[in-house]
Simulated assay, not measured.
Amino acid sequence: MTRLMVFLTLFMSGFVVAQDEIYTGYFSNKALDGYDTVAYFTDNKPVEGKPDFVTTYKGADWYFVSQQHLDMFVAEPEKYAPQYGGYCAWAISAKNDFASADPKDWAVVDGKLYLNYNDDIKRKWDQNRALHIKQADENWPALIRP
Rank of each mutant, 00 (worst) to 15 (best):
M1D: 15
R3T: 14
M5I: 15
M5L: 15
M5Q: 15
M5T: 15
V6T: 15
F7R: 14
L8G: 04
T9K: 13
T9D: 10
M12V: 13
M12I: 13
M12P: 03
S13P: 03
S13F: 06
F15W: 12
V16H: 14
V17W: 15
V17R: 15
A18S: 15
A18N: 15
D20A: 07
D20K: 06
I22D: 02
Y23W: 05
Y23N: 03
T24C: 02
G25Y: 04
G25E: 03
Y26M: 14
Y26E: 15
F27I: 12
K30Q: 10
K30N: 09
A31Q: 06
D33P: 09
D33R: 13
G34S: 10
Y35I: 08
Y35K: 06
D36Y: 07
D36G: 05
D36T: 06
A39I: 11
F41I: 10
F41C: 10
D43Y: 14
N44Q: 12
N44D: 12
K45C: 12
K45Q: 14
P46N: 09
V47T: 11
V47C: 08
V47S: 07
E48Q: 11
E48N: 09
G49E: 01
F53V: 00
F53L: 00
T55C: 04
T55Y: 03
T56W: 04
Y57P: 05
K58A: 10
G59T: 04
G59L: 04
F64M: 04
S66Y: 02
Q67G: 08
H69W: 02
L70W: 01
F73N: 00
F73L: 00
F73S: 00
A75G: 03
A75F: 00
E76T: 02
P77H: 05
P77T: 02
E78P: 05
E78Y: 05
K79C: 04
K79P: 02
A81T: 06
P82D: 00
P82S: 02
Q83G: 02
Y84S: 06
Y84C: 07
G86I: 00
Y87G: 01
C88P: 02
C88L: 06
W90R: 02
W90M: 03
I92M: 03
A94T: 05
K95I: 07
D97G: 11
F98D: 04
F98Y: 07
A99S: 12
A99C: 09
S100Y: 11
S100C: 10
S100R: 11
D102A: 08
K104D: 09
W106V: 08
A107F: 06
A107M: 11
V109Y: 02
V109M: 01
V109T: 01
G111W: 02
Y114K: 00
Y114S: 00
L115E: 04
N116E: 04
Y117W: 07
Y117E: 09
N118Y: 06
D120K: 12
D120H: 10
I121P: 05
D126H: 08
D126Y: 05
N128M: 04
N128T: 05
N128V: 04
R129Q: 06
R129D: 00
L131C: 05
I133C: 01
I133N: 01
I133V: 07
K134V: 07
Q135Y: 10
Q135C: 08
A136W: 01
A136D: 03
N139C: 08
N139W: 08
W140F: 14
A142F: 12
A142L: 13
L143T: 11
P146G: 12
